[in-house]
Amino acid sequence: MEPLILLEGAAFGLTVKRLCHQLIEDRGHLGDTALIGLQPRGVLFARRLRSELLRITGEKQITYGELDITFHRDDFRHRPVTAIPGTTELDFSLDGRRVVLIDDVLYTGRTIRAGLDAMLAFGRPRSVELMVLVDRRFSRELPIQPDYTGQHVDSIGDQHVTVEWQETDGVDRISLKHVAR
């Protein structure tokens, strides 16, 4: 079956911009904010957000890090393949910062739980919020909800949501496809 395209091109760019403006509207300024992208695919979203935010605010820099959660997963014995760790680049303390945790797709919530756990090694943030490009509602296994959402997708178990990025995949696109079980 052909994948169903949920969002692409200019509309995709608008959604990312809207999330940036929402963040600025909520916080006023981003001085004490730290953006943290989750490896592997959340960092692509986080990098885009960073460059958009820099452009919109005219700031020179925004505190930004990338976090790998491989060693904090609760399912590493249950996955069909061994998870290969990505890199963590977080060279600042989270103490007192307002963190925005960033991932592309929110599904069961387990990755975010592992991300919250992994973050503990870097200090005690003042607050943590969650931003996702796609929220797959109704498939949560943990009580975790996003604060900023690009798009809601109501999907069933054997569907797979893929987010592609211009920078790495050559196209901005969110698509939904069936995977054989």
Partner: peptide, 12 residues
Amino acid sequence: EVLSRPIKKVPS
């Protein structure tokens, strides 16, 4: 990288 953190421990 984990061993360079202030808390050098993971729960795996």
